[in-house]
Amino acid sequence: MLRPVTRQHRAVSAPIADLVTYRALPTQAIDHIDPFLFLNHHGPQVYRPNNRGLPFGPHPHRGFETVTFILAGDIMHQDSGGHQSVIEAGGIQWMTAGSGLIHSEISSDQFKQRGGDLEILQLWVNLPAKHKMVQPKYIGLQKPDIPEVKLDEGRVTLHAVSGEWAGTPGAVQPLAPIHLATVEFQAGSQVTLPVPTGNTVFFYTIRGKLRVNGQETEARYLTEFGPEGDELHIEALTDAVLLLGHAQPFNEPIVAYGPFVMNTEAEIKQAYQDYQAGKFGTWHE
């Protein structure tokens, strides 16, 4: 049975300094799709040579995970746990903030010098209460590290980031069963993908135009589905790129304030106290 489309939400313009940004979640129309909390779509834009790059200097997080998809350009990660990497186009970063850490996400020196195309998505995924205070972890993967699944005689390419897709395990197996993939479609291609009944669906069209379960959608739209049904039938009206996810909802209280996502106001207050007390680690330039 096909999942019914209930609503579509256009991402809102939310520029950050000179970085073109569209926020798909949360907006005035939709707060979250449990356990998916937040999505910023940066770009696409072209940076000139000798640019300042991405503006995300050192800042703290606790209680959730950030998943960053680099579509064009690059991103240089550093955190108070000692992790460092430069991930290029086609790669992803999966950071489990857990009990708390400080990180920065800026452009590489090479990108700042040369400039070029940039397009990046960052998704925040909640952690269940039992895992909110786990030890922080970081995984940085380049494009070749992410399994590809070819569908519709090769006209659809699914990049299996987490969970399992068409029998292929994703590159990351997170603490909670979160399934995430980016999917590239050639115009005229189509695919039917199973989604377990009861799982919420995260469906964000990055580029192009698609038809899902009979409903047309286009770039920078988040499509919301009802709970019934266990299939998504997706047709590509043009060449297109999709961010697709599904997961069992946690059905737990969500209290988000700034860079922290917990279950109670008291836990948010504690997060600020712990950060100010230096318990998120030491930042080294």
Rank of each mutant, 00 (worst) to 15 (best):
V156R: 10
V156Q: 11
L158N: 13
L158T: 07
L158S: 13
H159R: 15
H159F: 15
A160Q: 08
V161F: 11
V161I: 11
V161A: 13
S162L: 03
S162K: 03
S162G: 09
S162Q: 06
G163L: 03
G163S: 02
G163C: 10
E164T: 07
E164K: 00
W165I: 00
W165P: 02
A166I: 01
G167W: 06
G167Y: 07
T168M: 09
T168Q: 14
P169F: 05
P169L: 12
G170Q: 02
A171T: 03
A171F: 05
A171M: 00
A171N: 00
A171Y: 06
A171V: 04
V172S: 03
V172W: 03
V172I: 15
V172C: 04
Q173L: 13
L175E: 15
L175A: 12
L175M: 12
A176L: 14
A176C: 12
A176M: 09
P177R: 06
I178R: 00
H179R: 01
H179W: 07
H179F: 06
L180N: 02
A181K: 05
A181M: 10
A181T: 03
A181R: 06
A181I: 04
A181L: 08
T182A: 08
T182W: 12
V183I: 03
V183S: 11
V183W: 01
E184C: 08
E184P: 06
F185R: 05
F185H: 05
F185L: 04
Q186R: 10
Q186P: 06
Q186I: 02
A187I: 09
A187G: 14
A187Y: 05
A187P: 08
S189D: 05
S189I: 00
Q190K: 14
Q190W: 07
Q190N: 14
V191Q: 08
V191Y: 11
V191L: 13
V191M: 11
